[in-house]
Amino acid sequence: MIHTIQKSERLNVVDALRGFALLAIVLLHNLEHYNIYFIPEFQPAWLQVLDKWMWDSFFFLFSGKAYATFSLLFGFSFYIQFHHAEQKGLDFRGRFAWRLVLLFLFAQLHALFYNGDILVLYAVAGFVLIPVCKLKDKIVFWIAIFLLLQPFEWGRMLYALSDPDYVAVGNRFMIYSERVGGVTMNGSFWEVLRSNIWDGQLYSNFWQVENGRLFQTSALFMFGMLLGRNGSFIRNDRTIGFWKRVLGIGILAFVPLYLLRVFVPEHIDNPSVLLPYKIITQSLGNFAFMLILVSAFVLIWFKKENGGNWQKFIIPYGRMSLTNYISQSIIGVCIYYGFGLGLYRVTGATETLLIGLAIFTVQWVFSRYWLSCHKQGPLEYLWKQGTWIGSKNNKKK
């Protein structure tokens, strides 16, 4: 079903959910010291115990799930833009392709500072939406399911079972990780930028491809588009029932996937079978848990009709997600990297979470102030203007 967009309800819950996912991403990046995995050894015993608990808890709850939520909403945003253009008699596909090129340029800015960028992946995977955006829901759904199941990893695993001499490779990213590690810890600002132009991006993107995120991201984009087509963020009896079913499916799927991921690997002797097996179970497990988080968030929003106060609180942060995503990385590397304050040397998980909350607070205050004067964040505005550059639609605005 194609529904007319109802901004007042639909986008508020989506912006709140996007803000929640981005907050989780910020906290995870701080826990990692923005890809400097370093644990101070001089911390008191009680703090080490607390740090381990914080690390394990946050990674269990949000690692791979916050990114998946962000990806789901990227596909949803595509649907909104496509549908609005369609209502005006415009074909958005060409503009969207150009929009992805612009996103790639934003990614280059971000990747200069932080070697954990996901925007390059989004700019590439986003092109899968163009050929499927006019297909029927069922066709799109089954294509997304196929991609979600990690067909490449299944192929590798089955081939490894049939050929004992086959060696699966999944650590090419380590070559570039080792190159950038010393630079981020001890290099100057210009050395970090120079390293990230090539090695940092290869490190980030090899890691994502080798861990199944190319297929998973493409699937999530399609699922997000389907959520838009079916008006899944508009509150009514049908959508409440839909999200309750999603919550149940997420719970039923996550439990066995978690058990398969934790207990089966020790019984797999062939490393070329084990590697794709881990990627498949990890990817599917993260997807199932993401379903739990997203459906619970939306159902809580629907229960209050216009969302809970804590959900509405985070809306400004989600409305400026591109600006906040890029700027939090710039702030973070200045705090942790060697050219900045170098706090990776002295901060454990508990301190980094507090720093992450401080970054979020500063960005939330700025977001609220900026949106009181403007309709969009600064980078969101540039992205939109660039998308429609040269069009009559842009000139009217």
Rank of each mutant, 00 (worst) to 15 (best):
W190G: 08
L50I: 12
S295K: 03
V26P: 00
A16T: 09
I175C: 00
G377Y: 00
V365T: 04
Q150A: 07
G338A: 07
R229D: 01
L354W: 15
G19M: 05
S367H: 02
W207G: 03
Y34E: 09
R229S: 03
P131E: 09
I175L: 12
R172E: 12
V262A: 13
I330M: 10
Y337S: 06
K397A: 11
I331C: 02
V294K: 00
L341Y: 12
N286C: 09
Q87I: 11
D15M: 02
G356V: 13
Y337N: 13
S63E: 15
G224F: 08
G126D: 08
V132W: 02
G75D: 03
L129C: 04
I326P: 04
L202Q: 11
F38E: 09
W55K: 04
R238Q: 11
S77H: 03
Y37N: 12
L299H: 05
P265F: 13
F92N: 14
Q201I: 15
N286I: 01
G170W: 05
C133Q: 07
S372A: 14
S232C: 11
V294L: 05
N30E: 10
T361C: 04
K244T: 14
G241K: 11
W370F: 12
A21Q: 01
M185F: 00
L135H: 07
Y369C: 03
K392N: 11
L23R: 01
L121G: 11
P131Y: 08
Q208E: 14
K7M: 00
R18W: 01
F58A: 07
N393R: 06
V124K: 01
Q81R: 07
F60Y: 14
I389L: 10
Q48V: 08
L73Q: 08
V49L: 08
L259Q: 14
Y67V: 13
N324M: 12
Q208T: 04
D237M: 07
Y159M: 05
F76A: 07
G386V: 10
S195Y: 02
V264L: 13
R95W: 09
S272R: 02
E380C: 05
E86F: 11
T347V: 05
Y325G: 02
R10I: 02
L72V: 13
Y67E: 10
R345E: 14
R93L: 11
F287K: 02
R95H: 10
L112P: 13
I39V: 13
A85G: 03
F215D: 08
K384R: 14
T347R: 03
K52T: 13
E305G: 00
C334Q: 10
Y34M: 12
I292T: 04
P164W: 05
Q385Y: 06
R245T: 14
A16N: 03
K136E: 12
Q81G: 01
I2Y: 02
V262K: 13
N171I: 10
Q216W: 06
Y122R: 02
Y317L: 11
G182Y: 11
S77T: 14
D137L: 00
G64V: 12
I130S: 03
L343M: 11
S327I: 15
F92L: 06
I389R: 01
K384W: 00
I240A: 10
H29R: 03
G155D: 04
Q282W: 14
I197E: 01
A21N: 04
M225L: 15
G342A: 08
I36F: 05
